Computed example of a mutant assay.
Amino acid sequence: MNVGTVFTLSGAEAAGLDPEILDVWRAAFGDAEDAEEWRSSVWDRHRSRAGFRLVTARDGERMLGFAWGHTGERGQYWSDFISREVGRGVDDWIGGHFEFVELAVMPDARGRGIGRRLHDALLADLPHERALLSTSARSDDPAVRLYSSRGWVTLATYGEDRQVMGRVLA
């Protein structure tokens, strides 16, 4: 499969892509039964944040994957949650960071470097000094392997099987 261009879009430019994004989301994560709830509680909320950017990979008209993130600040749900959960392990990283929120690739398109390309495009030329994300704490998880191979390090663990990873960008 030949993967076409990876596109980078702002929040306004991403408007109207939610049906395609949701299709990839469901194929990759298997949740989001209520499309309207997902749209308002996940997609629109993140898309409206400062510094939002979305990258997509396509093969012709078909979306193969996406990644998105935005500027993270104290007072936002995830930043405050992580600060409460792990405290000192991430406090110096929170506020003004790039929050790497999602990365998903269609199951039949995995293993072709699409996730790596999406990851790198999402982080390219950001003005932020650091980035944060949350993922599984299992070292055999494909996402953890991808992030570790791209320079992310574990800052703290929380819950039964979660970790916060950070990466210096500048």
Rank of each mutant, 00 (worst) to 15 (best):
Arg110Thr: 15
Gly65Lys: 11
Val144Asp: 00
Leu64His: 09
Val90Gln: 00
Ala14Trp: 09
Thr157Leu: 03
Thr154Ala: 06
Trp38Asn: 07
Thr8Leu: 04
Phe81Trp: 08
Trp38Val: 10
Val24Met: 10
Leu133Arg: 08
Gly96Phe: 14
Arg26Ala: 08
Arg49Asp: 07
Gly95His: 02
Ala131Leu: 07
Gly87Ala: 06
Arg26Gln: 15
Gly75Val: 04
Asp80Tyr: 10
Tyr147His: 02
Pro127Met: 00
Ala14Pro: 11
Leu122Trp: 07
Asp91Tyr: 06
Gly95Phe: 08
Gly30Asp: 01
Gly89Lys: 03
Leu64Thr: 09
Leu17Gly: 01
Leu146Gly: 01
Asp91Ile: 07
Glu129Cys: 11
Phe52Ser: 06
Ser148Tyr: 00
Val55Phe: 11
Ile114Ala: 02
Ser139Trp: 09
Ala137Asp: 05
Phe7Ile: 13
Val6Asp: 00
Gln163Tyr: 08
Arg74Met: 04
Leu122Glu: 05
Ala137Tyr: 06
Gly65Asp: 05
Thr56Lys: 03
Ser41Asn: 12
Phe98Arg: 02
Thr71Gly: 00
Leu122Thr: 12
Leu103Trp: 12
Asp80Cys: 06
Ser10Val: 10
Asp31Ile: 04
Gln76Trp: 14
Met63Ser: 04
Asp161Thr: 10
Thr5Pro: 12
Ser139Leu: 11
Phe7Thr: 13
Arg53Lys: 13
Asp108Leu: 12
Arg84Cys: 07
Trp25Val: 03
Val6Met: 00
Gly113Ser: 06
Trp38His: 09
Ala27Cys: 10
Arg62Leu: 10
Ala143Arg: 07
Arg45Glu: 09
Pro142Phe: 04
Gly113Phe: 12
Val105His: 03
Arg49Gln: 15
Ala12Gln: 12
Phe7Pro: 02
Phe81Leu: 14
Gly69Glu: 05
Arg26Trp: 14
Arg116Met: 04
Gly113Tyr: 13
Trp68Lys: 06
Glu129Tyr: 01
Ser83His: 15
Ala109His: 08
Val105Phe: 12
His119Leu: 11
Gly95Leu: 03
Arg162Lys: 15
Asp161Arg: 14
Phe100Arg: 09
Leu155Arg: 05
Leu146Arg: 05
Ala32Leu: 10
Ser139Lys: 12
Leu22Pro: 13
Asp59Cys: 13
Glu13Tyr: 08
Pro19Val: 10
Arg145Cys: 05
Ile82Asn: 00
Asn2Lys: 15
Ser149Phe: 12
Arg53Asn: 13
Pro127Gly: 01
Glu99Cys: 05
Glu13Ile: 13
Asp44Ile: 12
Trp25Cys: 02
Arg45Leu: 11
Val24Leu: 10
Asp161Gln: 08
Val101Trp: 00
Ile82Gln: 01
Val164Leu: 00
Leu118Phe: 13
Leu169Trp: 01
Arg47Gln: 09
Asp34Thr: 03
Ala50Thr: 14
Leu22Ala: 14
Ala121His: 10
Glu160Ser: 11
Val164Gln: 01
Ser79Leu: 11
Ser136Val: 14
Ala14Ser: 15
Val42Asn: 07
Val153Asn: 08
Val6Gln: 01
